[in-house]
Design a binder for these strands. Structure first.
Lengths: 234, 234
DNA sequence: CGAGAACTTTGATCCAACGCAAACTTGACT
DNA sequence: AGTCAAGTTTGCGTTGGATCAAAGTTCTCG
């Protein structure tokens, strides 16, 4: 296994304000893994043996219902923790994590969590801040699902992805990993058919450009207005 | 202000395993407040000056959208913390808390949060466990809203309330505070009309008994089956 | 480069649930 | 005990999206 350099993680919010020696200590305990596209990092209901930090790539966190329906809980971007079941006092993962593209992750044995949080207070509190932030996002989503129409929900979902992982191109802001109509449907509680119709309609109005597993937001402001419920003229 | 006795809080999970002296220390810094029914404990967007522990009563936590729609995020039962914006690094409350009945709460200045978490590690970690648990519940709700029909969602909501605050009566398990059709609608993302129709239908089948601001679950098992998607015979 | 798999589009139909409207019931307050 | 407000029920028309069905595209890989 190759040696892990502290520069890999030094810039990340979670490790903010930690001494270089501490970073090295943390890295010493980590394994780094390469996860091929469509492979899972961890599996729902599986024994929570590890927790992870995404170094490179994009991962989608998916919950599957007993009857096989899937809901995408969130997308993980580089620098974010995932599989932190241990921090929540769970012994099993509440969702699966699937690589949306080839990924590189760091993994620590879950049993290390308590001592890491204790030895590196910044790491512990950073994790809790992450959990708190996710609670708020998730509650915002509950409000969306409970009060908004599909069109607004899909618009919000795209805007969130743009903010999280948008990459500027000459056409607009591209969502920086392959994402299908089905994926968007699973983020918003609708069907791929409805998403397809919405994207087509938006494309005709010049709000977005989209193709196979690819969405570019051309006019974020108008899409935002739409997300907030103001119907778009023309 | 009356003296607060440590027996008030000694049995609560959050304060588990804390020395009597610590409990006294914590209580010393608390004010106790009486909140009349329908009064707010704290208000969405308001400066997060305090965090709270519910001693007695029931509180509903409500988010209001810009266009005035309301969503009930959760009900708080005695022994639970609320308004812990500070623990999440917020300076403003993300929702309002309204007393569903006359309540008694303890309040601490929000500025005290960091030192309390530091001086009483059990209290700090207990809070984080609470936040983690709420994240999981909230994610479960997202899955519900995204995949289930209204009937299943309402059934799930009632079962959750029964579990949280159910009181046995000779008719069945009563939800132990006044709750209107409108409230149930705001918990499940539907309308009071639909809730009313569902309750009427369930009452005819003998699953529940309900009246003005009152719901009793007569046959939890059958309601559960319904919540899981198995249609109820007859 | 040709075939098949994966993804997307589009049309047609249907229905769960909403929105509106009006009546009814229950409790609270005077 | 009578009035009013708050909460609930119920009917009816409408509709946003789901579902079903089929064709069209774009990749991938042998």
């Amino acid at each position: 296994m190759s040696r892990l350099d502290r520069s890999l993680i030094a810039g990340m919010p979670i490790f903010q304000g930690m001494a270089p020696a501490d970073l090295d200590g943390i890295l010493q305990k980590a394994r780094s893994l390469r996860i091929a596209k469509d492979q899972t990092v961890f599996e729902q209901e599986g024994e929570a043996h590890s927790f992870f930090l995404l170094l490179d790539g994009h991962v989608r966190v998916v919950k599957t219902t007993p009857d096989g329906q899937q809901v995408i809980v969130r997308y993980i971007s580089p620098g974010e923790l995932m599989g932190i079941a241990h921090a929540l006092g769970r012994t099993t993962y509440p969702a699966s994590a699937v690589a949306a593209v080839d990924c590189v992750v760091l993994a620590w044995p879950g049993s290390l969590w308590p001592e890491m949080a204790a030895s590196f207070p910044n790491f512990g509190s950073g994790t809790y801040r992450t959990v708190g932030a996710r609670l708020q996002e998730t509650q915002a989503r509950v409000v969306e699902l409970a009060t908004e129409q599909v069109e607004q929900r899909v618009a919000h979902a795209l805007l969130r992805l743009v903010k999280q992982t948008g990459r500027k191109t000459e056409e607009g802001i591209l969502i920086d990993f392959p994402i299908s109509r089905q994926d968007i449907a699973e983020m918003t509680g609708t069907t791929l058919h409805t998403v397809s119709r919405l994207l087509t309609a938006w494309e005709e109005k010049g709000l977005v450009k989209s193709g196979r597993q690819k969405v570019t937001v051309v006019e974020p402001h108008r899409l935002f207005a739409l997300a907030e419920g103001q119907a778009d003229k023309d």
